[in-house]
Amino acid sequence: MRHTIHATVLCLALVSSLSACEARQDPIEAARPRPAPTTATVQQLASDGGTLSVTRIAQGLEHPWAVALLPDGGFLVTERPGRMRRVGADGAIDVPLEGVPLVWAHGQGGLMDVVLAPDFAVSNRIWFSYSEPGPDGTAGTTVATATLGETALDDVHVVYRQPKVEGPNHFGSRIAFDNEGHVFISQGERNDRPTAQRLDKLQGKLVRLNLDGSVPADNPFVGRPDARPEIWSYGHRNSQSLAFDPRTGNLWEAEHGPRGGDEINLPLPGRNYGWPITTHGINYSGLDIPEAVGETAPGIVAPHHVWEVSPALSGMAFYTGHGGSAWKDSVLLGALSGGVLIRLELDGDRIAGEERLLGEMGKRIRDVRVGADGAVYVLTDEIDGELLKLIPPRR
Rank of each mutant, 00 (worst) to 15 (best):
G60N: 08
I277W: 04
G274F: 08
W232K: 04
E62T: 10
A92P: 01
S241K: 10
R369Q: 11
L69R: 10
A352D: 12
H63T: 07
V368N: 05
F75E: 00
N191E: 15
D72H: 04
V370M: 07
N179S: 13
E98W: 10
A121D: 14
T38K: 13
A66V: 10
S233C: 09
R228P: 04
V370E: 02
S47W: 09
T4N: 13
A375K: 14
S310F: 05
S314G: 04
Y130W: 07
A89M: 01
A23K: 11
R125L: 13
T4S: 15
I264L: 09
V143R: 00
S330I: 07
V165A: 14
A139R: 06
G110K: 00
Q162S: 13
L390Q: 03
V378R: 10
G60P: 11
S186G: 10
S186A: 12
D113A: 06
T380V: 13
G270M: 03
F177K: 05
T51W: 08
C21H: 11
A196F: 05
N250P: 04
V122H: 14
G110C: 00
G324C: 06
R56G: 11
Q187P: 08
E345R: 15
P303K: 07
V156R: 05
V103P: 00
A31E: 14
E291Q: 15
D72Y: 13
G167C: 13
A121M: 12
I289K: 03
V368H: 06
L116K: 01
E345T: 15
V114N: 00
T8D: 13
L45N: 04
A121C: 10
R343S: 11
F244H: 03
A117N: 08
G321S: 02
I365G: 00
T248Y: 01
V331P: 02
T195G: 08
I342G: 03
L148S: 04
L357F: 03
Q197Y: 09
R193I: 10
T55H: 08
V309T: 13
F318I: 06
L69D: 07
E180G: 11
G172L: 03
G181I: 11
V222P: 05
S310V: 01
A36E: 03
E255D: 11
I365P: 00
S330K: 08
L199S: 12
G91R: 07
L242Q: 10
A372Q: 14
G323F: 09
D218M: 11
P35I: 12
R350P: 06
D212C: 10
V370P: 02
A20Y: 12
E345M: 13
P225R: 12
V67I: 13
R2Y: 15
L242S: 06
M361P: 00
M361C: 01
S337A: 13
F171D: 03
